Simulated scan of single mutants.
Amino acid sequence: MGVESLSPGSRIASVLATASRIARRPMVREGFRDAMPMAIGIAAWGLVAGVAMAKSGMGVVLAILMAVTVYAGSAQIAALPLIAAGAPMWVVWATAACVSLRFVAFSFHYRPYFAHLPRGRRILLSYFMGDTNFALFVRRFQAPVAEHAHVDYFLGSALTTYVVWQVSIITGIVAGHAIPAEWGIGFAGTMALLALTCTQLRSPSTSVAAVVAACAAVAAYGLPLRLNIVVAISSAVATVALVRHARSALKGTTA
């Protein structure tokens, strides 16, 4: 009997049974455990984004639809003032694209781990990419290992992040003006992301790249469309590439 011939109740039961089997996998549980400490910071950012969407004048239904379909907090916060100000659509799209360019770098890093999967599944997984679960993934896997371990760990951390984010941002949208800006809940999210970033600074090259990126972001802060983020990312990538090239040249000289 095919899935399409099952009753709605049987389909739901089948989906829940599949989800239960996946949740029992060791690497899925490990990804869940690693992502949970970041839940407070993610929830804080979600509330900030939700409150911002509510105060922008966007209707509740449209705001929730945007939260579910976009799933990119920084892009949402960057685009909201432009939408509220009636900016041309191309400006909104360009701003969101510039802010989200880091996901291209994330995808390039994920490729050796997920290249064996069918394209449709890779597209589905790409929807759940985020800064937090990317940092956790990089920390957990230095190189490809068992085939299913990558997907399971990614699912465990990414789905945890996704659920926390959606619950918090929808809460912020519904609560709206009831959450005052004086609470400073965005600061908790900033500190959580900063702490997670610091855990990735394991070598002199990454530390130097982080300092260069921070300086570049501040120096280019006046650029429109949040292009200072693109400048910071490009500076960090260029710094790491130069350091690696210098090391290779030095090894070749001493060999």
Score class of each variant (00 low, 15 high):
A39N: 06
R24A: 12
A210R: 06
W90T: 11
S207H: 06
P224R: 05
E30N: 03
V138Y: 10
L250S: 15
A94V: 14
V211Y: 08
G189C: 07
A44Y: 01
T197C: 01
R226K: 08
V237S: 04
N228G: 10
T239Q: 11
P112Y: 05
I12M: 12
A39R: 09
W45R: 04
Q76W: 07
I173N: 02
F154N: 00
A63I: 01
P224Y: 09
D34G: 00
R21P: 04
M129Q: 04
A209R: 00
T197W: 02
S20H: 07
G222S: 05
L155A: 01
S205M: 05
V230K: 13
F134E: 00
A175D: 02
V240E: 04
V211T: 10
V174N: 09
A85H: 14
M1N: 15
I170V: 15
T254Q: 15
S157K: 03
I40A: 05
I42S: 01
I77S: 09
G46P: 10
R21N: 03
A54V: 02
A94W: 10
R226Q: 08
W165V: 05
V151I: 12
V145Y: 00
A238R: 08
R122P: 12
G50P: 05
A115W: 07
G86H: 07
A236I: 03
R25M: 14
V164Q: 13
A249T: 14
A39K: 10
M53S: 12
V28E: 02
Y221L: 08
R140N: 04
G172K: 03
R226F: 07
A105H: 12
P37T: 04
S168A: 15
A67F: 00
S207K: 12
L6M: 11
A181G: 13
M191K: 06
I42A: 01
G186W: 10
L82V: 09
L47H: 13
A72T: 09
R25P: 08
M129L: 11
G41F: 11
A135L: 11
R102Q: 12
L194N: 07
W45C: 04
H148T: 14
G176C: 13
S207Y: 03
A181I: 08
L227H: 07
A39C: 06
I169N: 00
R21G: 08
Y71D: 01
A19V: 05
R25L: 15
L250P: 01
A67H: 00
H177C: 13
G130W: 06
K251C: 11
G46T: 15
A105Y: 15
R140C: 03
P118E: 13
A241Y: 12
G9A: 08
V68M: 14
R24Q: 08
A232R: 02
K55T: 12
I179Y: 07
I77D: 04
V99H: 11
A188F: 07
S56D: 15
M1F: 11
R24G: 08
I77G: 04
V138C: 12
V15T: 13
G184L: 03
A146K: 02
G252I: 04
P204N: 07
A158N: 05
F187V: 03
F106I: 15
R111Y: 03
